[in-house]
């Protein structure tokens, strides 16, 4: 996904208002962007707080300022700068966090970001984007050069089968139709479970929806119909429950009078065993592996 992100950024190189700051990360990934925009690619060093303040200053001066680090260093270390310098002034700084969730796997807990968008969405006026597919950047990146809102962009890995074509980027996308219920997955998790869904007959597979933009936009009519017509609803995300997309969706459903009794929210749980491993290992510990998510739609599964 980082490669696709970089490719799309390079396509914007002719914009005179484009400045990109990295917190000394991006080796073997962002070099093409550095070569494309020259002195407007700034390595701000291992100093994320200052990087965000500088970006705010640049944005105040009319620049489209982007900041980049791995996800935990992008949202947690400079939180006050994001809050005070960027969000209080409604500056359209784009903050890119690579490897959201358990993306950095066995690198350990300090390198995970399982609270990122929940924490950031407490800030007024901020958007969080969680693209699921490489092709998302084709439309997403140009749109971010016109947004007037502070934005957090969480990068992960594309996890769909390679030869499948994803629908164009949208806050809500339906990937699979089924009859056994509805599975809403946030960002790349949707891609990870897509193929497993399709292996099931229509009667035992869920409708699969991908959510890629927060705060949660109004539910599409078709999603509302899916939830209303089939009682089982599972929401899966690589993020802790507090501040999650699932909480926001549940609140929307409650307001719409659509509370379902057969509801499961599958989230990051931290480190249940106290052990570390790959992203896949941590997802499995949290019940976020495709088989676990789909088991909820088996006939006798209790939610």
């Amino acid at each position: 996904m980082r490669q696709a992100f970089c490719d799309s950024m390079v396509r914007e190189q002719s914009r005179e208002d484009f400045v990109f700051l990295t917190g000394d990360l991006g080796f073997k990934a962002l070099e093409p962007l550095r070569e494309a925009i020259h002195d407007r690619f700034i390595n701000a060093g291992v100093a994320e707080q200052n990087m965000v303040s500088v970006a705010a200053g640049l944005a105040r001066q009319g620049f489209r300022a982007w900041t980049y680090s791995i996800a935990p260093f992008m949202f947690a270390r400079p939180f006050e700068q994001i809050r005070n310098d960027v969000c209080l002034h409604r500056l359209p700084v784009i903050m890119v966090g690579n490897g959201g969730g358990y993306g950095y796997g066995v690198m350990g807990a300090t390198h995970h970001a399982i609270e990122d968008y929940g924490v950031l969405l407490t800030l007024n006026g901020l958007d969080a984007l969680i693209p699921a597919f490489d092709s998302d950047f084709t439309t997403l990146i140009p749109s971010l050069f016109t947004t007037q809102r502070p934005t957090y962009l969480r990068l992960g890995l594309e996890e769909k089968p390679k030869d499948w074509t994803a629908p164009p980027f949208a806050p809500w996308r339906k990937l699979v139709s089924g009859q056994a219920g509805t599975l809403i997955a946030v960002g790349p998790i949707a891609g990870s479970v897509w193929a497993s869904c399709m292996e099931r007959p229509e009667e035992t597979r869920p409708n699969l929806w991908c959510l890629s933009q927060l705060p949660v936009a109004d539910l599409p009519e078709e999603l509302w119909r899916d939830i209303s017509q089939t009682p089982r609803l599972v929401i899966a995300e690589e993020h802790v429950a507090t501040g999650s997309a699932g909480s926001a969706i549940a609140l929307k459903l409650a307001r719409m009078g659509g509370v379902t009794s057969q509801f499961r929210h599958v989230t990051a749980l931290g480190y249940p065993s106290g052990l570390y491993g790959s992203q896949k290992f941590h997802r499995a510990e949290c019940g976020l592996a495709p088989a676990s998510l789909l088991a909820a739609f088996d006939d006798k599964a209790a939610l």
Binding site: V19, R40, V52, S53, A55, A56, G57, R60
Partner: peptide, 25 residues
Amino acid sequence: VLFATGSLGHGVGLAAGLAMGRRFQ
């Protein structure tokens, strides 16, 4: 007033961003 301040430690970085923007422009 270009920026809300009060929590200490923000102004020099903000001004650096302004200065860098001026240089680019």
